[in-house]
Design a protein around this nucleic acid. Sequence first.
DNA 1: TGAATTTTCTGACGTCGCGTCAATAATTAG
DNA 2: CTAATTATTGACGCGACGTCAGAAAATTCA
Lengths: 236, 236
Amino acid sequence: MNTLSPKKQQMLEREERILAVARPIIVQDGYHGLSMERIAAEVEYSKGTIYNHFSCKEEIIIALAIQTANIRVELFKRAAQFKGSSRFRMVAIGYAAEKFVRDYPDFFLFEQILQIPSVRSKVSEKRQNVVDNCEVQCMTVVTGIVRDAIAAEDLELPPGFSPEKLVFGMWALTSGGFTIASSSESLRHIGLENPFDLISDHTATLLDGFGWSPLSTDYDKQATIQRICEEVFGDE
Amino acid sequence: MNTLSPKKQQMLEREERILAVARPIIVQDGYHGLSMERIAAEVEYSKGTIYNHFSCKEEIIIALAIQTANIRVELFKRAAQFKGSSRFRMVAIGYAAEKFVRDYPDFFLFEQILQIPSVRSKVSEKRQNVVDNCEVQCMTVVTGIVRDAIAAEDLELPPGFSPEKLVFGMWALTSGGFTIASSSESLRHIGLENPFDLISDHTATLLDGFGWSPLSTDYDKQATIQRICEEVFGDE
DNA sequence: TGAATTTTCTGACGTCGCGTCAATAATTAG
DNA sequence: CTAATTATTGACGCGACGTCAGAAAATTCA
């Protein structure tokens, strides 16, 4: 079942090596610093061989994004399993999102690059679907928690307001927040530090706005996060 | 005072022409479709002359962004002057933001491109400051409304929670929302249409979460927006 | 084992876009 | 009207892209 033909095995290994070489290049020197020639030189294969694996550098970038996107899915799934009320599980998701951004800041760079239409149009539909699917998986996990909350009567959504809509808001707030935090200088102009805490405060307020109990005023956030760290992610 | 030397005048005019030519190119063919050669050909000047105005294509993109960013500042300033309670003025801002995205969708493309570090590093600090400053101006306008709300006792923020922090949340939510709406396919996967209404609902809920009165449950949103359209933007 | 065949790898090649700069044309000053 | 200054041009060198004919390696078969 997991036995691949040694041929394919070797192929995959080399693919990993190419990605491993490409990652620091793009992290350090950005989109324009990454070139097929440079990868070929560093990985010590010819350009043609690299092209056998990836048809352009954008394809490499999305492959890097996929590696990391899978990790996020895992983090979200783990967070969703936190033993506690729906609202606390939501806090766990927030923590997972934050942890992900902290641990894999590169991902945001890849995502930004891949958002550009003229970049996106160069990558295979297959890989695009994989990233999209990762995002959908994450959102599905969160939607599940929203449904659980409704079932448990921790939350009542306005008529016609689907769980997906709530998740959209959370997603917009967090991804927008992380994007601003990671890129915009306007933040410091305005005297804000600690964007992560801020985002977490805002998601809490938004959920309060929906009346998702227990409200953020009724539980000890610090203690909850403490528990999440220990029980879900095994951090101290 | 507004008399520029005819030299400079002519210079400016040509700059406008270059930008006017570049805009549709990048809108249609994206970042990679835009090249100095192509601009030169279409504007019927030589490449060298184009380079006299803009030192690279990224510089042209940011110039395009600046044109549009100024419009947003104007929209926000106008919205802030809506005669009504602080909460309604906030709704007006939301409407302005939405109107801006509707009327100038290109701006998001430019912003996305300019967010990429390796692109950003190619543009002059001067122009970067101009865009940053536009963003800061917008946020300052909004912050002013928050302060007014506090002064009028429509809103009480938690201790240590500055108006700027609230604005950050609004900004994250709307810009994140618009970004997802404009790019991600995940939306339709999940069955969401009308992202604009959704964003507006979420901002309302977030403000409700802060207890900014009148709460969204206590006023007629449709009617308010109607008034805003007429009184602030003169739309029917 | 060794020749034949298939597969994989290679780097030179044509192309394109960038940014420069010496030469040329236009403008202004004297 | 000429000299000096300023503006414009496009050819040039460079680097990256993506391709492909041929070299090298691996595999098959007698």
